[in-house]
């Protein structure tokens, strides 16, 4: 059950990353550079979290 919840969390984080990257690029287009930088950082962290949740057993310290 907990494993299923983490699966859902990884999908949600993937979608958050997608939206954050899209928002970051959009913000660059409307000259909101600080907001764009913030959203791109959010996207990178969310995507890293989504993939770290899938790290195989050998890769976990």
């Amino acid at each position: 059950m907990t494993g299923r919840l983490i699966d859902v969390l990884s999908v949600v984080l993937l979608l958050v990353a997608l939206l954050a990257f899209a928002g970051g690029i959009y913000s660059l287009g409307v000259a909101k550079d600080v907001q764009a930088l913030y959203l791109l950082i959010i996207g990178a962290l969310a995507l890293r979290s989504a993939t770290d949740l899938l790290r195989p057993a050998g890769g976990v310290r």
């Binding site: 494993g3 770290d52 976990v60």
Partner: peptide, 13 residues
């Protein structure tokens, strides 16, 4: 089968 326990996955991230 190939994924570790939920706790270890959470700790990894």
């Amino acid at each position: 089968k190939t994924l570790p326990s939920a706790r270890r996955r959470f700790n990894a991230a």
